[in-house]
């Protein structure tokens, strides 16, 4: 083998190449993300300014856009705080039902043997991928039959029901990860199966519960399509219906109001998102891959 020389300086070349590559990566990411950044920036700028020159440059500071907080922009519209409360009620309702139902079901499906177990398991897993939105028309009929149209309860039940397979799937993953030894030793220590669930298993799946709760809350808070389809009564409006009405009424004019209400609506989402984005990423990935 011929003696090769170690030539100094080749790293410099490599690093220069790397630097160029890296800089172009950053440039690409920044350019691609620009619409998103500008869009969300507008929520803030647009909400506090009268008029934007050239679409982007703020002229003057104003809080006029926020008058909806005490004075509805249209006499036919409900009080914003009632709407706010409705939104919260919807989100909390979805969260509560979805978490309780799917956690208990997931425990049974993950840990207990009963006839029909594999069928139930298979159907939840299949339903997890099923596009629920195609069922909208039939859901409308069902809610009408149950007398739940124009009621937030109808939307809560539908949204929670549609999220249950997802919840079961994620929670089953968490339950599956708990070693059987722990549950077995609880049983040997004299706990009943229910005590085991309540005192031993539940504390261990808290992170999973937190994850699906955050997910359910965000989904409930943002709910749009079922809401505008099933609920027309202004007394049951949420912020989605409110903004939908703004878009409908002032389609291309009052951007200040649109930005202000949107920001008002987005505020809890942004807060939640900043606090839990890592969790959300994990569940978005984990929920797809099976809760791990």
């Amino acid at each position: 083998m011929a003696q090769r020389k170690f030539t100094p300086g080749s790293l410099e070349r490599e690093r220069r190449k790397q630097r160029i590559l890296r800089v172009s990566m950053y440039l690409f990411l920044i350019a691609a993300s620009l619409p998103i950044v500008i869009g969300y920036l507008w929520l803030f700028v647009g909400a506090f300014t009268g008029n934007l020159v050239y679409g982007l440059v703020p002229q003057s500071f104003t809080v006029e856009n926020w008058s909806f907080l005490w004075d509805p922009p249209s006499p036919a519209w409900p009080d914003i705080w009632r709407t706010f409360f409705n939104t919260f009620f919807l989100a909390a309702g979805v969260t509560l039902i979805m978490v309780v139902v799917s956690t208990s079901a997931a425990y049974v499906v993950s840990r207990m043997y009963f006839p029909g177990r594999s069928m139930i398991l298979a159907s939840t897993l299949i339903l997890h991928a099923f596009p629920a939105i195609t069922l909208l028309i039939a859901l409308y009929y069902i809610l009408r039959t149950l007398g739940l149209l124009d009621s937030l309860w109808g939307v809560i039940l539908v949204r929670a029901g549609l999220m249950v397979p997802f919840g079961i799937w994620v929670m089953k993953g968490f339950f599956d990860d708990i070693p059987w030894d722990i549950e077995m030793s609880a049983l040997i220590d004299g706990a009943t199966r229910f005590q085991t669930f309540w005192k031993v298993m539940l504390p261990l799946v808290k992170p999973g519960i937190a994850a699906i709760a955050v997910f359910a809350f965000m989904a409930g808070w943002a709910e749009y399509i079922f809401l505008v389809t099933f609920v027309r009564d202004p007394n049951s409006w949420t912020l989605s219906s409110y903004i939908n009405a703004i878009i409908g009424n002032y389609r291309f004019t009052n951007y200040g109001l649109l930005a202000a209400v949107s920001l008002f609506y987005m505020f809890p989402v942004l807060l939640f998102f900043l606090l839990t984005q890592k969790l959300l990423m994990k569940v978005t990935v984990g929920g797809i891959k099976g809760g791990r």
Partner: peptide
């Protein structure tokens, strides 16, 4: 150093 040549700034692939 490899063979008394300073290789701090030699890329991995050129270090053999």
């Amino acid at each position: 150093y490899f063979d008394d040549v300073l290789v701090n700034d030699v890329a991995p692939k050129d270090r053999y």
